[in-house]
Design a protein around this nucleic acid. Structure first.
Lengths: 217, 217
DNA sequence: TAGATTGTTAATCGATTAACAATC
DNA sequence: TAGATTGTTAATCGATTAACAATC
């Protein structure tokens, strides 16, 4: 009896979904039919309790005494993460990072369709980017009004991101994949932000390495 | 009376340090001398309580009735995050993502020194990468034994990361900046892992956008 | 049936927030 | 001194873990 109560899936659970999906995908490929929460927990380095609690957020489809059907689990997670219309996506900033991310989006991301890329540098505008041609960011408003993209990928400096964010919100962007240092806050209702702060990530790694306990001699 | 009790800084606090640093840096540049926890909280979108709790983890240097001295705060955060010897760092995987990350490391990361880059593709080996020449990953062991790098950046496929991780641990790598889909677990004592799972990030963004509450009409 | 494992409730743990005495 | 703001303890909140009855 699936009780698809999605509004109640908490953020920590949502963040774990892709990992569950990857693991279940692999089990499926290996031809495994059934898996228990404790087996999954061992593979993930977590607890069986957490696995069961998480799976119960999006519908109880385990079988007592047996475990979970891998194929069913796979289909549920796939539906949850990747079903429905592709999300039309624009890229803002086609520098080194922007180009890499656009390649990633095209080759490895499911459910997103890159429909346009923008930059403000004369040297970038008009260049090819995969199937696309880089457009002048001055034309961004017109483009969005016409094509209504839902997701924006920001690969621009902090300052530009701060300036552009309100405009993009007004143009109806519902999801931001933000690589700028600007701390884009998801304060508008119905808007989602995924911040990827590479600088913060490497800084906190540095802190931890420097301050790691010296291994007891 | 600074009570540099670093071992007690919890992970959530560590993750916030770079953000505090960026903000305090900006305040300093704007010539602001003093700031209260509530002012900081407003700028960060958090609570004054959290700011004070966090700052107290690494030494109480506020002044009652006045607030925090921006310059002192800046110097403390800088010391905490970036002081000490630079961390010798190797890059494994010089594909599109690896090259981008190496550029980022060279231009925007503080406290890290990229000392070598490795790949296994004949077409990559010998190519220039900034000041470096891409080395054959077959020579990685010898290199590490000789130069003892502390940090490894993994821009390789999941499978390769899974194979290489134990070797790197044995060679004394203390910090991993992991961009592969392999879920590198920091189970060895004194070893830190920062996972940057771009695929998971974009997948969870997709989930959230698709399942966002429709704005109440 | 007996054994196993789920679904789900209860207990624990840790992080965040609130409150307030100390003190500048 | 009076007002403001910290440092720190206490209360709350939410996530994780444990426990166990339901059931395959």
């Amino acid at each position: 009896m699936p009780n698809q109560n999605q509004n109640k899936i908490s953020l920590p659970v949502i963040k774990r979904l892709p990992r569950y999906f990857r693991l279940v995908h692999e089990l499926k490929d290996r031809g495994i039919n059934t898996v228990s929460s404790s087996e999954l927990a061992a593979l993930l380095g977590t607890t069986a309790s957490q696995v069961r609690q998480d799976f119960n957020c999006f519908g109880g489809f385990g079988q007592q005494g047996v475990g979970y059907n891998v194929d069913l689990l796979f289909r549920e997670l796939e539906k949850l993460l990747y079903s429905g219309r592709e999300l039309d996506t624009i890229l803002v900033g086609t520098g080194r990072l922007g180009r890499t991310i656009s390649g990633f989006l095209a080759s490895e991301a499911t459910g997103f369709r890159l429909v346009a890329a923008f930059d403000n540098a004369p040297g970038e505008i008009g260049r090819a980017l995969g199937q696309l041609t880089v457009l002048d960011v001055a034309t961004l408003q017109d483009f969005c009004k016409k094509h209504k993209p839902q997701v924006a990928v920001l690969c621009i400096p902090e300052q530009s991101a701060a300036e552009l964010a309100p405009t993009l919100l007004q143009l109806g962007i519902k999801g931001f994949w933000n690589f700028s240092n600007y701390d884009l806050a998801a304060d508008s209702p119905g808007v989602t932000v995924e911040n990827v702060h590479l600088g913060d990530s490497i800084s906190s790694l540095g802190f931890q390495v420097r301050n790691a306990e010296a291994p007891r001699a």
